[in-house]
Design a protein around this nucleic acid. Sequence first.
DNA 1: CCACTTTCGCAACGCTGTTGCCAAAGTGCA
DNA 2: TGCACTTTGGCAACAGCGTTGCGAAAGTGG
Lengths: 377, 377
Amino acid sequence: MSEDRVDSGRAGANLGAVRSHNSALVLDLLRRAGTEGVSRLELAERTGLTPQAVSKITGRLREAGLAAEAGRRASTGGKPRTVLRLVPEAGHAVGVQLDRDALRVVLVRLDGAVVGERCGELDLGAGAEAVLGVVVEAVTGLVRSCLGPFGELAEVGSLLGVGVALPGPLDHVRGVLHRVTGFPEWDGFPLRDALRGRLGVPVVVDKDTNAAAVGLAVGGAGGSFAYLHLGTGLGAGLVIGGRVHRGARTGAGEFGHQVVQLDGPRCECGDRGCLEALCLAAVARGEVEAAARVLGVGAGNLVGLLDIDRVLLGGRTVLADPGPFVRGVAAQLAARARREGLREGIAVEVVRQGERVVARGAAEMVLGAGVFARGEA
Amino acid sequence: MSEDRVDSGRAGANLGAVRSHNSALVLDLLRRAGTEGVSRLELAERTGLTPQAVSKITGRLREAGLAAEAGRRASTGGKPRTVLRLVPEAGHAVGVQLDRDALRVVLVRLDGAVVGERCGELDLGAGAEAVLGVVVEAVTGLVRSCLGPFGELAEVGSLLGVGVALPGPLDHVRGVLHRVTGFPEWDGFPLRDALRGRLGVPVVVDKDTNAAAVGLAVGGAGGSFAYLHLGTGLGAGLVIGGRVHRGARTGAGEFGHQVVQLDGPRCECGDRGCLEALCLAAVARGEVEAAARVLGVGAGNLVGLLDIDRVLLGGRTVLADPGPFVRGVAAQLAARARREGLREGIAVEVVRQGERVVARGAAEMVLGAGVFARGEA
DNA sequence: CCACTTTCGCAACGCTGTTGCCAAAGTGCA
DNA sequence: TGCACTTTGGCAACAGCGTTGCGAAAGTGG
């Protein structure tokens, strides 16, 4: 997540990069360990660093207030290991999910736990000014109710930033929307800078599917998976090698507009036989099993192309009745695996966080990127 | 390519890793510079390292015999820049392409230039012993004719290893074949170890499409692209962020068996409506334009999913008559781009090296992995 | 011929993780 | 209760990375 300094593009590595890389690594392991904590020696084993190096790194993290000692393990015949734990209150992030008709805002701690939430209605068509007002109102209100009184949001020391997730293609790097289907007034709107200006804290913007993928990747042990989101549309967030794949123009994940039926029915995108059109039409007809089968075909195409570890399902339509979707997709993947001579298909699951997965992931984008900027101090 | 030490999995970085990383980086830039060479300051700019660091690194490379000074640039008002160039003869690698009915062996230098080639017929069904014999014979014969007399292959100091590329699913990490369609006797054959035993030099094994992708990625500036190979089958090699994506079980790139026609005609894989079946059927009927259109649909699905930079076409069928394929695929991608509101589709090209692309890429796999092992000494 | 620009190496430096060593804190047996 | 042993983890010295400061080398241009 945060080791971009070492290998982004083809950049040279210096000692600062090594420190960033290793500190981020340790911090990530600490986050995964959660309440249980990890010992220094375990960290050394998992990172491949020497115990002494881990001691130095964790020492820096403790000094920065990000980690703390928390009890000790049972002895195995010698001095018991000291358990290190993340200090969850040392950092917070806000995650915002904007949908066509709804708004969800969560406040999460450094350890990923949700400590506050607000949901409400939203009319994306009401114009940028109105929508921004609602978002600013919801974010400041939520933070105020959870983290006490303050004047400006920037005064909340532990607040690392705000992550915003919304549907439709956008430029993740610059935080500019390309277009939001059905709402042409958002075309080219610089959402990140606008929000950053009104909130006064760092803002990150990404597609909803990518945000969810970021959230689900925490604890994913560097694996690869796809998050398939079936709601008002159908998209995918791809995690490859523990990192979200956004592509050259941050447009990756157009899963719903893959063609699975040459010369099939017209899709609103203008093409024919798109997966999204077929799948949603089946849902509309009440034929969930057929929808699941079509979704499974698309998932199979994706799995064949990328050979990922597992498939996660989410989004309003799936969550309303998960069983048939999981079974349908799993069946398709199992059949594909059999044809390839493998024993079993790859795992298919429904996301555990349910409706929250996107908002939580949006917050996680901030934690993944921002925690370490403080740890460096 | 070779910076795995720094970020493979989630490994900690130490000083050795930094040196490896940076040396590999510089070496890679030197290889791309080719005959023209690069100056130290250019290397510094591109890596982000200080000129002094580059001087130290190139000093080590020169001492190892991998690089040398080669003239100077025109002065711009001060001391002219000294040009550094790779010493092409410092390293060689053999690339082997095994196809169902043909064998191609190339010997390439460190700079990627092909200095020797052998082609011949092959019967993959003749059994492992016979095929291995033919390969060993061809490899030693070629190296002997190019690099002078020797007893064992391992005595050729500049020979870094042999890369082998062949169709069908296999385990790249362990060098074991899964199965070669139509030749069940190869199921589970440990090709890498068998060849390594008989040749006495390091051997790397990979799918033909991945090998081609490796070769094409050299000089690719860290971008992402897909190599689509249409020959007796249809597969893809994916390069994401300058690195070949092989997936969890090194099975990525199953491009030909994506379903694009629900309930379409049966494919020999057992599924229905596979791209490969439809595309090859059209070719068999002589309808090249239709084949290209179908291929373009598949390419569009891939581009939408991964948002890559460009698409490269190769393989016997494409090379026999490239025009219609390039036009057909480009048309599909342009249409997709228009639907997404982009000005133009992504670039579609035929691979320049033609029939050699796979064998060259196989050799490149060795250079990418092996050069640096020597540079460290 | 001299001033200026630009390249590039030497030496000292700061910082990284590593190594060698020892104190601390347990277990387990006599 | 005491002693031997195991295991953890900090202190200090170290090797090696890229960086900084500075000066020599090698050109151009007036």
